[in-house]
């Protein structure tokens, strides 16, 4: 089995320092919507300057390089034990090179490990086996703590919001989550929404959906419509970039559904900050492609 430590290091460097094109495109559209001279527009202009500078200098877009979340689809025959070891070694090296901030803190002692390596779930690595003829694909998302803290889970029906167990109820609780977040999740944000599941699987799915491209539309027309409506209505709230007030509070919404128990109806919202860092590497034979 090939040693991919250096290639994974490059994946981490790109994720932390080079904002994906689909996100940058939406930020550039957002600047044009804000009034000249407004705090909202100034904030977005600073954000775009920062995006360029980070790419040019290979420095982190945000100092909170977040929770490293890896999804690995490996062809039959690869060793997940070795892949995990290579990912962990690459992450420690990325931290040494200042692409990543040391972010793994022991919850009981408060001690920072200094190299981003914590227990088995830090970094988070999800493995899934695919057919022997398929390429190895490693996806990485970096999700900062500020936006993670404003994530929310609702159990429907919710009497306070008048939200029942249907898409109309989903709409109400998601808007409530955006309102509660205000500017604290580094608006303009991107919403990952999972409907159903148990508490744990619902949270995971609300993050997994954020791996999709912002340019892809939802194959389910009802969900596609709700995604668009939620983005528009969230923007009507007027929270704006950084919570300064303005027209852009949310850049996009992604919704997925899961099977649930008859008794449970969870709606989980993962709020992703504008620094929506995610990259993919594809290994086909000797060739490594980064997206």
């Amino acid at each position: 089995m090939r040693d991919l430590t250096n290639e994974i290091l490059e994946l981490i460097r790109r994720a932390s320092t080079d904002l994906p094109a689909d996100v940058e495109k939406r930020l550039r559209e957002a600047v044009e919507r804000e009034d000249p001279g407004s705090a909202a527009r100034n904030a977005l202009e600073t954000i775009l300057k920062n995006v360029e500078l980070s790419r040019q200098n290979s420095t982190p877009i945000c100092q909170d390089t977040g929770t490293p979340i890896f999804y690995v689809r490996y062809p039959e025959g690869w060793s997940t034990r070795r892949l995990r070891e290579q990912i962990r070694n690459a992450l420690a090296e990325a931290t040494r090179r200042s692409y990543m901030r040391p972010n793994a803190v022991d919850a009981l002692t408060g001690k920072n490990t200094g190299n981003n390596l914590g227990d088995d779930d830090f970094p988070f690595i999800h493995f899934e086996e695919v057919g022997a003829d398929e390429p190895l694909v490693i996806e990485l998302m970096l999700k900062g703590g500020g936006c993670e803290n404003v994530g929310a889970q609702y159990s429907l029906p919710d009497a306070r919001l008048g939200a029942g167990r249907d898409l109309a109820g989903v709409r109400k609780v998601v808007l409530d989550a955006v309102h509660k977040a205000q500017g604290q999740g580094c608006a303009p944000g991107i919403l990952g929404v999972a409907i159903g599941g148990d508490r744990g699987s619902s949270y995971l799915a609300s993050k997994e959906v954020l791996f999709q491209s912002m340019d892809e539309s939802n194959p389910d027309p009802k969900l596609a419509e709700l995604e668009q409506r939620l983005t528009e209505e969230a923007n009507q709230l007027g929270i704006g970039p950084m919570g300064f007030g303005g027209k852009t509070t949310v850049l996009g919404t992604k919704i997925t559904g899961l099977h649930r128990l008859p008794a449970s109806y969870f709606v989980t919202v993962s709020y992703m900050c504008w620094a929506y860092r995610r990259r993919r590497m594809i290994v086909k034979g000797d060739e490594v492609i980064y997206e």
Binding site: A43, T46, I47, K49, N50, L53, S54, N57, T59, P60, I61, C62, Q63, G144, G146, G183, C186, M242, F244, C273, W274, A275
Partner: peptide, 13 residues
Amino acid sequence: FHAVGGAASYIAQ
């Protein structure tokens, strides 16, 4: 004072 969240490379300069 509010700084721009996420503008980390820019502010570091």
